[in-house]
Design a protein around this nucleic acid. Structure first.
Lengths: 124, 124
DNA sequence: CTCAAGCCTGCACAGATATGCACGTGTGTT
DNA sequence: AACACACGTGCATATCTGTGCAGGCTTGAG
C-alpha cells in the first residue's frame, strides 16, 4: 500500500488511501506518456477529420482526403507524414496514387468511442 | 451521395464513392472540433496522469494529486484550472481542502479505453 | 492575533506546433 | 519528349502551450 516513491515521501498526504489508489490508477508512467502521444494525434481538428475519414473510408488517396476534409493537399501530406511517423497510418502506393489506411488499433478504438456519441447531431 | 460541398466541387475525385464515404465518417465539423479539444486535454502526460488519478480515486485533494503524480502543486493547479474551464472536472471545496472529481463522461470513456489496454505491464 | 497549510493566479520564458509557400520527385498521358 | 497530375519536403512564421517563480487569499491551529 505504500506506493508513494521515496523521492517525495516527505510530503504527508491528506488521504493516504486515496493517494495510493490514485497511483494505482496512473500505472506505468511510460505507458501514460505513450497514450498522451496518441491523444495528441487526435487533438487537432484536421488530423481528427483525416483519421475519421481513414477509419470509415478505408484506403483512400491523399487528394481525396483533401477533398473530403477541405484541407489543402500540402497540409494533408504534412499531417499524414506525422501520422505515418507515429505508426498511426500506413501508406500503400498504387501508381502515382498513394492510398492511406488506419494502422493503429488503439486509435481505431478511440474513434469508435467518438462514433458511439452520435455521428450526426439530431436535427431538432 | 453528392456530399462534396460546392465550395470545392471543381476538384474531381479519384474515387468519388470513397470521398462521400469519408465525408459521412467525418460528420459535423463542429463535433469534430469539440472532440479534438477533448483529446487535447488528454494529450499531455501530466494532465493524463491527473485524469487517470481522478477517474480511479474519485474525489481527491490537489496536494494529494501532486503527491501521486509527482507534479508540482502549482502546475497541478494550472492543469486543474484548464480542466475546470473545459468542464472536464469539478471542484468541491471542503474547508481549506479542494477535492476534484471527473465530470465529463466522454473523457471517462476514453480513460476506460486506456484501462482495457493493460493497466499495469506484466511483471516479466 | 500569529502562523502554517492548502490552493489559486499573473507573468515571463522556453519549447512545440500548425500553416502556407515554393519547390522537387516520380508517374501516367498525349 | 513534353506535359499534367499526385504527392512529398524544407523553410519561415505566427501561434499556442506547459512550466516555474513570486505573490496573494482563505481556512484551521496554537
Amino acid at each position: 500500500m505504500h506506493l508513494v516513491p521515496p523521492e517525495r515521501a516527505h510530503q504527508h498526504p491528506i488521504d493516504e488511501h486515496t493517494v495510493c489508489h490514485a497511483i494505482e490508477g496512473i500505472g506505468d508512467p511510460e505507458r501514460v506518456r505513450a497514450w498522451a502521444e496518441r491523444f495528441a494525434l487526435l487533438a487537432d481538428p484536421g488530423r481528427l477529420s483525416l483519421l475519421l475519414a481513414l477509419h470509415r473510408a478505408g484506403p483512400i488517396a491523399v487528394s481525396d482526403l483533401a477533398l473530403a476534409t477541405g484541407i489543402r493537399d500540402t497540409a494533408v501530406s504534412q499531417a499524414l507524414r506525422l501520422l505515418r511517423t507515429s505508426g498511426a497510418v500506413q501508406a500503400d502506393k498504387d501508381g502515382r496514387v498513394v492510398r492511406y489506411r488506419l494502422r493503429a488499433p488503439e486509435i481505431a478504438e478511440l474513434l469508435e468511442v467518438l462514433a458511439t456519441h452520435g455521428s450526426t447531431p439530431s436535427p431538432g
